[in-house]
Amino acid sequence: MKTNHDTYKLRGFLPNYFKRIGLALAIISVLGFIGGMIFEQAITIDKEAIATITLDGVILGLLIISLSKTRIEDEMIMHLRLNAFAKAFIFGTAYLFSVSLMSLIMHNDVPITPHSLIIVELIMFICFFEISLSKLSKQ
């Protein structure tokens, strides 16, 4: 029978230090986006291309954070992770419904891009998971 350690080592998650790499990538992408907005006239690259590249960078950064292991991985951490995924998915669906409903009521066409939905879900997953971990560490 596999040990608990082996079971959770084989899940395909990234080592813990990838959390910092993901965070750095997300921050650099956000700064790149802000920089692109400020120096809009000076940059010759298409504005939409900058937005797409930076949003992709943010998504990749958040995904790396989400897939990084905690310092100690065991079955309860995996349970908390799955709970956080479920909550984030429900939150994302609620976000999608509420934004489209608001858009309909206010006759204002607010576009929901796949990028924004994924970013909301990833951010909410990270928040729910980190809250669970901090509650756990207080025990």
Binding site: T3, I72, E75, M76
Partner: peptide
């Protein structure tokens, strides 16, 4: 048991039901 102390604490306080293996 190769788990975290928090996992043992949660099991003791009936906040978490362990897997069959654990």
């Amino acid at each position: 048991a190769e788990v975290s102390r928090q996992t043992i604490n949660s099991i003791e306080k009936n906040r978490y039901v362990p897997s069959t293996v654990l």
